[in-house]
Structures are given as C-alpha cells and as structure tokens.
Design a protein around this nucleic acid. Sequence first.
DNA 1: GTCTATACTTTGATAGAC
DNA 2: GTCTATCAAAGTATAGAC
Lengths: 188, 188
Amino acid sequence: MTRTVNERADAVAALAEIFREFGYEGASLSLIGARTGLGKGSLYHFFPGGKEEMAASVLAEIDGWFARAVFAPLREDPDPAAAIRRMFRETDAYFRSGRRVCLVGAFALGDVRDRFAARIATYFAAWRDALADALRRAGRAEGSAAEEAEHVVSAIQGALVMARAVDDPAVFVRALARLEAGLGLAEP
Amino acid sequence: MTRTVNERADAVAALAEIFREFGYEGASLSLIGARTGLGKGSLYHFFPGGKEEMAASVLAEIDGWFARAVFAPLREDPDPAAAIRRMFRETDAYFRSGRRVCLVGAFALGDVRDRFAARIATYFAAWRDALADALRRAGRAEGSAAEEAEHVVSAIQGALVMARAVDDPAVFVRALARLEAGLGLAEP
DNA sequence: GTCTATACTTTGATAGAC
DNA sequence: GTCTATCAAAGTATAGAC
C-alpha cells in the first residue's frame, strides 16, 4: 500500500509541498498523482475544480495557519513583545530555517500571480498589519510601526529568496536574527 | 508589418519581458511567437536549444548587464560610496521602481530553480560580494561589510516580492531609500 | 532566415465500471 | 471513493518549401 493520503486534509498538506517544489505549472496532475498516491479520480473527487482548486485550498490552508499561529497573537497577546518573539520562532520553524520557500511569495513572483492575486495580497497585508499593530502596542509611534513592519515582512521574504538562490539556509537564519535584534525588544 | 524583433539581441530583450511576466513554464512557444512576432522556425534558428536556451540567454544578458552597470563599479570605482549610491539608482531604474520583478529571483523560487541553479547562485553571490567589497573599501570592518551586503541584497529581493504581492511599487521605493540610508554613507 | 505543416508527447479534465 | 480508459487541447520540437 503506497497510499500516503487518507483524507482531504492530508491531500492539501501533500499538495503544498508539491507546489512549493515544482511551482503551479510545474506540478502536473500526473506528478501530483504519483506523489500523493491518488489517482485522477480521487483527486477530482476531493477537488472538483481541478488544479486551480487544489492550489486555492493550499493557499487557504497556509493563510489559516499563519492567522492562527502568528497574526492572531500579534494582535491579541497582552504582551506584544512576546508575540513578536513568537512570530520569529514560528517563522523559523515554518520555513524550516530557510530550507522551505514561501509558496505565497513564489506565486506572487510567478505565472499564477493574477489568478490568486487577492489571496496573495491579503496574506502579505495581514502579516504586515498584524506586526505593525503589535509594534504600536509595544510603544512604537504610528508611522514608525508601519514602516518597520513592512520592512520586516519584506526582508523575511527576501531572505527566503536569497537562501534558496545561493542554496544556503543559513542566510535565512542570519536574517531573522538581525531583524529581531533590530526591533530592540526587551528580552523576556 | 507586426515584426518587433530584427536580431537575436532584440529577441533576448523581448524574451526577458515574457519570462518575467509569465514565468518559464507559463511562457509557451506559441505565446513567445505571438509576442515576438517570430515563427517557431525563426525562434529555433536563433535558439537551437529551444526554450531552455532562450531562458539561459536571458539570464546571461541580465547577468552581463548587472556586471557592467553595478558590480564592476562597486569593485573598481575609486569612490566606493559613490559606487554604492549608483547601485541604488541603477537598481531603482532597472526594476522600474518596483513595477518589474527580478527574473533571477523568480527563477530561484520557481520550478526551474534546479535547471539554472549555477547561474542563479552566481548572480546573487556576485552582487553580495561586490557590495561587500565596496563597503570594505569605504571603511567597514570585514565581518560587518559581508553581513551588511547580504542583508541589502536579500532585502532588495524581498521588497520586489512584496511590492508585487500587494501590487504597490512604492514598497520597493521605500525599501531602497531605507536601505541606502541605513548604510550611512556621506552625501556627495 | 522565415514560414507552414506536422510529428509526437503531455497536459488537464471527463466518463463509466466497480 | 477509486480505478482505467479516453478526450480534446496545448506543449515542444522538427522537416521541408520558399
């Protein structure tokens, strides 16, 4: 039994890795079938909308994970500095210390930008705004918080690009450390 | 006469825009034919290796442009601070103030990463090392110059990703200004 | 050099048996 | 739910006339 997927949630998780590795156009249905161990029949049973619905489901899953694990704490944790430190920890873990790319960023640069434009924009804006909120609650001035948040989110993306480009995950780890230190939060 | 391309160099320039817009897999030969006004026969006359040779030629052209306009001055200009300021100006112009994506970065995240891995890595490493060299010559300590250069190059990439993701080129302009100011170079 | 026509493969997607 | 068979369309690439 080479079956690796038993329900839709498993399928979405597997699809995420496949899209990360091969991109949207590069992930053919035959490749997806081989990787998930699911035939086309099963795939279209889970995702009647075909490949586009598969990718949309993956993006929704990513969005949901970040909303729960990162954005919500940034907005709601009574200790905003702790929430920001947690953001860096979760980000490092999620991106496997630079060995995993950001699918949303890859889609933003790639051929499917327009197809998922709304969801891509929402993901980045939500991250930036949640971080700005935490910075404000931690005592930053309005304008400074917004600018700093935009910088951190965009620099994280850049570190993922460069880590992958030069094939050195340490680039990402160094960037996270530098960004966190640059915010000058009190240690717990 | 809808012909838009008269020689190989024109074809490479047109191909660069097409790959930027649609990605490698998304740029089909029929699309390329339609955009360049060249038939398949002409395309295979210019690029016997097919699409892969087209993309490789584009990457080589980009690499060459940056080497001449940015990397060489960073290494050779007797005034390293001026070369760094020039780097920011050229980068802003090249990426159309955030309206153009970096094809090398897009390839690094995308499905063709492995195919062009060597050239992608070289581009990023050359930029980082040339900038570190200029920073060193401008008086930075060894370790600080390398770290700062890595940060600037990766943050530029991230700003391009985010500008595209939220569809706001101003993100890129703000990032360049912040990075340049952060280097604390004397104004000319 | 450039075009048209075409070979051959793979794509995403559907239908129907079980 | 899952499989096999199959579809039409699009993919890259080649051949040959001009």
